[in-house]
Amino acid sequence: MNTETLIDTWRRLLADPHKSWVLYEHGTCVVLTAPEGDLAEQATSVLAEFGPVHAGSPAGDFGVVDVQDAEGWVVTGHHDDVLTYVGPEESEDPGQLAVGLLGRSKRHRDGTELRVVHVEDRRTVADPA
């Protein structure tokens, strides 16, 4: 999946105009609920800790969410603000186990490679009065 498609998908999924987020190469997104300073640096610190999978620990856990605003799934992990998108064309098996394992492996790659592809800085979005 190309970067522009991932950015568009996450923009639809994270429609809250006050949530800044950082996207990584394999589709993992870190939502920054209290953004400050360099967003990529802040998100990378979170993903470096909560992205890599460690068997037999909470880092191996995942959940699968069928999303309403895009085709595909969001795979959750042991940090509420670390989410990974899996597109329908990425998994031959649409079952939750197959999708979850794929999303978890994508999160692991992003959590170890840490290659930022997009920063969505919404700190400057004006609050409509």
Rank of each mutant, 00 (worst) to 15 (best):
M1V: 09
M1K: 13
N2E: 08
N2G: 06
T5R: 14
L6Y: 11
L6C: 05
I7H: 04
I7L: 06
D8T: 13
D8C: 05
T9Q: 04
T9W: 08
W10N: 05
R11K: 15
L14I: 14
A15P: 04
D16P: 10
D16G: 06
P17D: 03
H18L: 15
H18T: 15
K19L: 14
K19R: 06
S20F: 01
S20P: 02
V22L: 14
L23R: 07
Y24H: 05
Y24I: 05
H26E: 03
H26M: 02
T28Q: 09
T28L: 07
V30N: 14
V30F: 10
V31A: 07
V31C: 09
T33Y: 12
T33A: 14
A34M: 12
A34R: 13
D38F: 01
A40Y: 11
E41P: 00
E41G: 03
Q42N: 05
A43L: 12
A43K: 13
T44L: 06
S45W: 08
S45E: 15
V46E: 12
L47A: 11
A48Y: 11
E49W: 04
G51C: 08
P52D: 02
A55D: 12
A55M: 07
A55K: 09
G56H: 01
G56R: 07
S57H: 03
P58A: 06
A59C: 01
G60W: 08
G60N: 15
F62W: 15
G63F: 04
V65Q: 13
V65M: 13
D66A: 13
D66Y: 03
D69T: 06
A70T: 04
A70S: 11
E71P: 07
G72K: 03
G72L: 04
W73Y: 12
W73I: 02
V74D: 09
V74E: 12
T76S: 15
H78I: 04
D80A: 12
D80G: 10
V82W: 11
V82P: 07
V82Y: 12
L83N: 13
L83A: 05
T84L: 01
P88F: 05
S91W: 00
S91F: 00
D93A: 00
G95H: 01
Q96N: 11
Q96V: 06
L97A: 07
A98H: 05
V99W: 00
G100D: 10
G100Q: 02
G100I: 01
G103T: 03
G103P: 04
S105V: 01
S105A: 15
R107K: 11
H108Q: 06
T112K: 03
E113R: 13
E113K: 10
L114I: 12
R115H: 14
V116P: 03
V116K: 08
H118W: 13
V119G: 09
V119Q: 10
V119H: 06
E120C: 15
D121M: 08
R122E: 00
T124N: 09
V125A: 13
A126E: 15
A126Q: 12
D127P: 00
D127M: 11
D127E: 14
P128Y: 10
A129I: 04
A129T: 07
